[in-house]
Structures are given as structure tokens and as C-alpha cells.
């Protein structure tokens, strides 16, 4: 095995550990946006598709690249857009409850 592979493996394991550390602090309230946000991050596969496009040949290669590009772009664009849409819905209490109405109903 080349040193390149070991180097990649090192990066992979360290990133995995960083991921566990950072993500275990996300509250349950945000688990859906977290998953959707992580979803957009794996849209980084688009970078791989660009690299792929620089060396493929022939109709089959082009077809595979076209599909991969469409998949990856849908993943990355849709993922970030929908996560943003969700997160802007998470609001604080707009104004503190009116104290004048506190005595009612007690």
C-alpha cells in the first residue's frame, strides 16, 4: 500500500473523531436540521464529480459523469436550501409574556 493511502486513512479517522466530538453536542431539537445539514455536506461529492469529468472518455464515461453531476448538484443545492429554510423557522419567543395578564386564571 502506498503512503498516500495511509495518509488518507489518517485524515479519515481524525475527521471521524472530530465529527463525533462536534456532533454529540448538538441538541435533540436540532437533529433534523443537523441531518439535513450533514446531508448537504456529503454533497461535496460534487468536487469528486468535477475531478471525474477531467479524465472520463467515451459515451459511457460521459453518461456516468452526467448522472453523477446531476445527483451531486441536487444533493448540495437542495440540501443547503432546505436546511436554511428549516433553520429560519426556529425562533425565540417574540416578546416576553405580558405581565398584566398573569393574574388571570390562577
Amino acid at each position: 500500500m502506498s503512503t498516500g493511502f495511509i495518509g488518507d486513512l489518517t485524515i479519515f479517522v481524525l475527521a471521524l473523531l472530530v465529527g463525533f466530538e462536534v456532533i454529540s453536542k448538538v441538541p435533540a431539537t436540532l437533529h433534523t436540521p443537523l441531518m439535513s445539514g450533514a446531508n448537504s455536506i456529503h454533497g461535496v461529492v460534487l468536487v469528486g464529480v468535477v475531478i471525474l469529468a477531467s479524465f472520463v472518455n467515451g459515451p459511457l464515461g460521459y453518461l456516468l459523469t452526467f448522472i453523477a453531476a446531476a445527483f451531486a448538484a441536487a444533493n448540495v443545492v437542495g440540501g443547503y436550501a432546505v436546511t436554511d429554510r428549516m433553520l429560519q423557522m426556529f425562533r425565540k419567543r417574540p416578546v416576553p409574556a405580558k405581565p398584566a395578564e398573569q393574574e388571570a386564571g390562577r
Binding site: F12, L16, I23
Partner: peptide, 13 residues
Amino acid sequence: ATLTIAGALVGAS
């Protein structure tokens, strides 16, 4: 490396 790092983060999540 970018793909490896991002993939690992999502895998952890």
C-alpha cells in the same frame, strides 16, 4: 482529502 473529511463528518453524524 476534502471528500474524505466531509464524508467522515457525515458518517459520524
